[in-house]
Amino acid sequence: MTEALLHWGLLAAHALLAVGLALAATRLIRGPRAQDRVLAFDAVYLNAALQIVMFGMRFGESGYLEAALVMTLLGFASSSALAKFLMRGEVIE
């Protein structure tokens, strides 16, 4: 009972996250301007990190949390670098 509930519930949550990633990726492809694409890129990164957490919960491995932490750090660094690039035209000045 508990196993089945955890299995199907976490699978449903994972599917919802996958649909959300697909929608954000659609905005990433279609986005009319550069800032729309950067915003959608940030959302894609966050959805992927949450999916990694969900993988860890489904497989019972807590090591996936570190992977999600590294991915969040990289997403923050790349998104702020892209925002700085949109503002100034160059990243390192």
């Binding site: 949550a13 994972h14 996250l17 959300g20 919960m57």
Partner: peptide, 24 residues
């Protein structure tokens, strides 16, 4: 505990889905 975990995960995942839908 399993019910609490599944409810929290479903709530968070549906919030992320709503956010991505609004983004689109």
């Amino acid at each position: 505990v399993a019910v609490v975990v599944v409810l929290l995960a479903l709530f968070g995942a549906s919030l992320a889905l709503v956010g991505s839908l609004g983004l689109l």
